[in-house]
């Protein structure tokens, strides 16, 4: 209740606080709008994220299992000797977009040579081909997941901040200013009444003397 600011009861202070209140109210409106947009974006993206995550987990699971098989068949040493380093012609393009001031990425994954085996058929096995294929296929899904996850994390963080600020305005500052205005107005009114009373009394005394 006694949530008001400690200011002296002057007209200029009253005016000032009224301005602050107006400002806070406008600020709150804007933050609410921002919050609504962010909530909509976040909810929309959450579903896509879950789907993408599931796809990634599935394909990586398969890839890891296949990799285990391959290492059993060929032996770890042989597997370590085989890499597609020379063949990494993938292109990840990351660009930005902005939602309510939050910069989130757009990832574009493309790969020139999907099949690029530089190891020979000799001394390797179909299991290896399968493993290579699985890991290669996972990359596009991983790129998509990265885009969604980073976007969602940034948006959710901003949403939380916005919510907190909106709440601070709505539950702290606006009531505080309102209380202060009430107090100032009452005090000023009382002062005015006092002055009037003093004036009347002075008049009466003056009359009596005449």
């Amino acid at each position: 209740m006694s949530n008001r600011l400690n200011l002296s009861a002057t007209r200029s202070n009253l005016l000032r606080i009224k301005e602050e209140l107006e400002f806070a109210r406008e600020g709150y409106e804007l933050l609410e709008q921002k919050r609504e947009v962010l909530v909509a974006e976040v909810i929309g993206m959450l579903e896509s994220l879950r789907k993408s995550k599931k796809e990634v987990e599935e394909i990586l699971n398969k890839a890891y299992r296949s990799f285990e098989q391959t290492s059993v068949i060929l032996g770890m040493k042989k597997v370590s000797q085989i890499t597609l380093a020379a063949c990494s012609r993938e292109k990840i393009q990351v660009s930005d977009r902005s939602i309510m001031g939050v910069v989130i990425p757009i990832v574009n994954y493309s790969r020139e040579n999907m099949l690029c085996n530089i190891y020979g058929f000799q001394g390797t096995s179909a299991s290896l081909d399968k493993t290579v294929h699985l890991f290669c296929s996972s990359l596009k899904k991983l790129a998509k997941l990265a885009e969604l996850e980073v976007s969602l994390i940034r948006l959710a963080t901003e949403l939380k901040k916005t919510q907190r600020r909106a709440n601070a305005l709505n539950y702290l500052f606006i009531p505080q200013y309102s209380e202060t205005i009430k107090y100032l107005e009452n005090t000023l009114e009382e002062k005015e009444r006092q002055e009037l009373f003093q004036l009347k009394r002075a008049k009466n005394i003056h009359h009596k003397n005449n």
Binding site: I43, N61, L152, I153, T157, K160
Partner: peptide
């Protein structure tokens, strides 16, 4: 660069769901 956490061959850690947890906390 973007950061992406991936499960290793021992599977995904259940408690790790940073993005989702953040979203739920925010909402």
């Amino acid at each position: 660069p973007l950061i992406l956490e991936i499960p290793d061959r021992q599977g995904s850690l259940r408690q790790k769901k940073m993005a989702e947890a953040l979203v739920l906390a925010a909402l």
